[in-house]
Nucleic acid binder design. Structure first.
Lengths: 408, 408
DNA sequence: AGCTTTAGTTTATTGCCTGAACTATATGGG
DNA sequence: CCCATATAGTTCAGGCAATAAACTAAAGCT
């Protein structure tokens, strides 16, 4: 049979393969196995050899490199009953990364150790609507420095970080293309200034994408393919396929908010017509439900909507029902285009899920029967801090997949 | 910065990397460079060393393996002006693969050499509507054997093949899940019987996907990201992203025919409602245009439709205009979900392009402004034989990416 | 204490790439 | 015609990484 080459091979790319690449690959393989052990259980070198298919000798040598780099450490013993007990290995809890977020009404930073444990978190309220990037980033740098030094006092070194921003980004260029709710467009960020001298630097993420990645780590069902729908002012999405974020050729796939759900519908801020966002975005729901969003803060408007729903107010119920129905249409089309069968609701969709669920499932049944089972529509497991955790988690994952970055 | 590991590394997967993998990777690298040279220009070992970054010594050794396996051969000289002339290398034209196709009203087979040249082709008319797989496959095996021995008489050895089928397939299991127009569902194919003892075996492809791959090889603009829309009885699609077929987690991505374009529309054969296929499939267009498709053959109906369009008959014009508009809606949503910006029209969409183009572009402008430029909507460069050529081309590509399969 | 069992290290071997030296084969000038 | 120059391709020693097998280490069991 014709099959793609397994394991290490599989370039077709441009770089020549040398012997050193094998070591890089195997370092990642071993570290990956250590990382995927449940916290509390620490694999020994022998277990890693069995799990990876490498020989004990190779594993010993690879583990030595990882220990030298401080990425992992030895911890206690691992008695097996008979025989010499193995030495447990774990991700070094003295090394961490920082997740950061700029959102409409706050900036935040959190230190997450390599095992994924949140050590410190600080949220600072700040009105970033129609802001200028410079001062916001300066404030975030101050916040990051404070949290970083607090970590340092506890003996934790921050290796790198990730910043999540609500807008379209070009991660390679550290550029925010457009973030309508911040009022940013085409701004180049000085990410290095957030964590000076951190060996891994700072990576940039779209907020919905980062939240989708957080969901990937924290999903109770361990799903590796799903669409995360982020309901904020706009409707965003993060597409996770094969445990990887799928961003498409242009880098902005999963923008489920602008799928056409009503060809005769309203004009959208994106210039299109009948986009999901015009029906299921926060402002659209508030308006349809007869709740002003301008005079209240958005969270107050949401509280008011929930009250109205509890009181079974027809306008509110109809608005949410319509949002659910249209979300179903968009998800039906998504199922066809990327052949995905599971959805995670975040943002206001998570909050409104009790009212959304039924029209959503009916709509899926009508437009894409058999594509989604009812258990395949679930609610975010991480909640509001998803973007923060996802940005940090993604940096950790990059490290686990390419540990040679930290070898001397 | 946090980046995935380049070149050979990049597993995270399960297989350990050994030294031998480096060779496999570099064999593919060298062979890939030879393959991408334009026909007529034959690279020397020295040029390959420069192009790949490998040393001359390594390239010599790798080339020797490829020569021994018969995948490439030396051809003539390559005078550079001064100095010793290099020896040209090319893909061995004495080795080939076979593309095969089962379609509604024919079966076909073609022998394509490793450079992509079609050496032989045979199409055999056969009504496969509501057929049983056994006799069809038997007839195809006879056809394949005949074409294979004709190639053998010309000194060409067939290494493997690919079969394209109009339906959902599971390539790994050699299983056709459902092919409505053939009347097949859940049939296991004996692909090995088509090309007994061929070292690479026979791979199975969905027709639209195979056609999309053919498009990839023959696109004049060299685009590496596009959606191929295949208009047959149904509306299929093949999504090419980064020069790879993107099949999604379930293996059936790009099914653009079942995107919802009219929430209040007609019931679709897939069980959904308002799918693109209910508006833009061949039968749907014929019906809307007032042309019976039952009494005529499908090709006769298409001729009648073209006549009606030429005569500016309002019903026909309106039917095609509506199909174009709805295709635009589907493509707008696709642009959002997978962030693709270029479309290739195949099947009846290619035939009807003069009438479709304008409503399609208007629709794209209305629903996804800025996503597709007018030049980004083009017509298939390969025409009817796309699936056949694509299946063969894909097998060739698998070989070029994993040549070690043929080493002793 | 001695046997058994399992963990981890040491050592010889093999495979592959690299760099440098070397051979082979062309052009062009005296 | 012969030799300098330039380019192609091969040979050979060196280094790195994985492997297999032998060896050392550290426990439990009898």
């Amino acid at each position: 049979m014709v099959m793609p080459a397994p394991g290490v091979a599989g370039s077709g790319g441009s770089a020549p393969g040398s012997v050193g690449d094998v070591r890089r690959s195997n370092l990642a393989l071993v570290l990956g196995r250590i990382a995927e052990f449940p916290p509390g259980a620490h694999p020994s070198r022998a277990q890693l050899a069995a799990a990876t298919g490498l020989t004990k000798a190779s594993v010993s040598s690879l583990v030595l490199d990882l220990l030298d780099a401080g990425i992992i450490r030895e911890i206690g013993f691992n008695p097996q009953g008979r025989g010499r007990p193995g030495v447990g290995l774990e991700l070094n809890p003295g090394r961490a990364v920082m997740g950061m977020e700029v959102n409409v009404d706050y900036i935040s930073a959190a230190v997450v150790d390599l095992a994924g444990k949140v050590l410190l978190r600080e949220v600072q309220e700040r009105d970033n609507r129609n802001s200028v990037d410079g001062p916001v980033m300066a404030a975030l740098a101050v916040l990051a420095a404070r949290v970083r030094s607090a970590a340092g006092e506890r003996g934790v070194e921050v290796l790198g970080g990730g910043l999540a921003v609500p807008g379209l980004v070009d991660p390679a260029a550290a550029r925010v293309l457009t973030a309508p709710n911040l009022g940013w467009a085409g701004v180049d960020l000085d990410l290095g200034a957030l964590l000076p001298e951190a060996p891994l630097g700072v990576a940039l993420f779209n907020e919905a994408n980062a939240a989708a990645l957080a969901e990937l780590r924290h999903r109770p069902d361990g799903a590796s393919d799903f669409l995360f729908v982020s309901g904020e002012v706009g409707v965003g999405g993060g597409l996770v396929i094969g445990s990887e974020l799928f961003t498409g050729p242009g880098g902005h796939a999963g923008e489920v908010g602008h799928i056409v759900v009503d060809p005769d519908g309203a004009r959208c801020s994106c210039g299109g017509t009948g986009c999901l966002e015009t029906v299921a975005g926060q402002d659209a729901i508030f308006e349809a439900a007869g709740i002003g969003s301008v005079e209240h803060s958005r969270s107050a408007a949401m509280a008011k909507l929930l009250q109205a729903l509890d009181a079974r107010q027809p306008g509110a119920l109809a608005a949410v029902e319509r949002a659910g129905r249209c979300l179903g249409i968009a998800l039906a089309s998504t199922a066809r285009v990327v052949n995905i069968a599971s959805v995670v609701l975040g943002g206001h969709f998570a909050v409104l899920e009790p009212w959304l669920r039924s029209p959503l499932l009916q709509s899926l049944q009508k437009y894409a029967p058999g594509r989604y089972a009812s258990g395949q529509v679930s609610v975010s497991a991480v909640g509001e801090s998803g973007a923060l955790l996802g940005a940090a988690g993604s940096v950790i994952r990059s490290l686990v997949e390419a540990p040679h970055q930290l070898l001397s």
